[in-house]
Amino acid sequence: MSSVDEIELSELEQDALTEVVNIGVSRAALSLRKMVGEHVLLSVPSVEVLSRKRAAALLVQQSGDKLVAVKQNFTGAFSGGALLIFPQARSLELVRAVIGPEMPDSEVAEMEHEALAETGNVILNNCLATMANMLKRPLTMSIPQVVRGDGTDLLNQQQDDDADAGLVLFLYITFSVRERDLRGYIAMMMNMSSLLALKELLGGFIAETMDGEF
């Protein structure tokens, strides 16, 4: 049995995690709305646990080999590294969507790094803070970093000593602002023990939620 099989999420756990993350990105959308002054839609339609090799191949297959990501490490009851990933070809379009159409292209390019870091910080912080709150476990976040490369480069950013560390909680994300529809990914890289801890916390969250329905 592979390490991915051992921590495969049940349908109920996937539904619960998708719900928790969607609440997080909804809060991120409200924060981004304040930044851009326009309505922002964010959603996470699906969640998967993949090996890093499979996740990297999926990124290349769907988005090419030139990617840009905002990375933040997190520590707590479960630890790892979170990445908000977009195709590099769309990064300026994302920045333009966030800062508005009035700014000249030359200035947009100059602001790309800062705008990406801020956007990633808002989305990742809201997602992880919501997970922490709903699962009742605190998480500490690092400052955001902008990184570039192909899927393998990005997913190997996490320095792990564990032999079983090559697992990714892979979340598809849709992003709509200023009539631009963008697609990206949130990748949460965790070792086996962290994913098992998350799975246990999800079980507690599900049990508590179901108890509240009766």
Score class of each variant (00 low, 15 high):
1 M>R: 07
4 V>A: 04
4 V>I: 12
4 V>E: 00
6 E>Q: 14
9 L>M: 04
10 S>Y: 06
12 L>W: 06
13 E>R: 11
13 E>C: 02
14 Q>F: 00
21 V>F: 12
23 I>P: 03
25 V>S: 12
25 V>W: 03
27 R>K: 15
28 A>T: 01
28 A>N: 05
30 L>E: 14
32 L>G: 01
35 M>T: 11
37 G>E: 02
42 L>I: 05
48 E>R: 08
54 R>N: 12
58 L>M: 12
61 Q>C: 00
67 L>Y: 05
69 A>K: 00
70 V>Y: 08
71 K>M: 11
76 G>C: 02
79 S>M: 08
81 G>C: 13
81 G>Y: 09
83 L>I: 04
87 P>N: 04
90 R>Q: 13
95 V>K: 01
95 V>F: 07
97 A>Y: 00
100 G>W: 03
100 G>R: 10
101 P>M: 09
102 E>R: 14
104 P>G: 04
104 P>E: 02
105 D>Q: 15
107 E>S: 00
111 M>T: 09
113 H>W: 11
113 H>A: 11
114 E>S: 15
114 E>F: 12
116 L>M: 06
116 L>F: 00
123 I>C: 08
126 N>C: 10
126 N>K: 01
127 C>N: 11
132 A>M: 05
132 A>Y: 00
133 N>A: 14
134 M>F: 13
135 L>W: 01
138 P>R: 10
140 T>R: 13
142 S>R: 05
148 R>A: 15
151 G>S: 07
152 T>W: 06
153 D>I: 01
153 D>K: 09
160 D>V: 15
162 D>S: 15
167 L>N: 06
168 V>T: 09
170 F>M: 13
170 F>A: 06
177 V>T: 02
178 R>P: 02
182 L>V: 05
185 Y>H: 12
186 I>K: 01
192 M>G: 08
193 S>M: 09
194 S>Q: 09
196 L>F: 12
197 A>V: 01
205 F>Q: 03
206 I>A: 08
207 A>P: 07
207 A>E: 10
207 A>H: 09
211 D>A: 15
212 G>L: 04
213 E>H: 09
213 E>W: 14
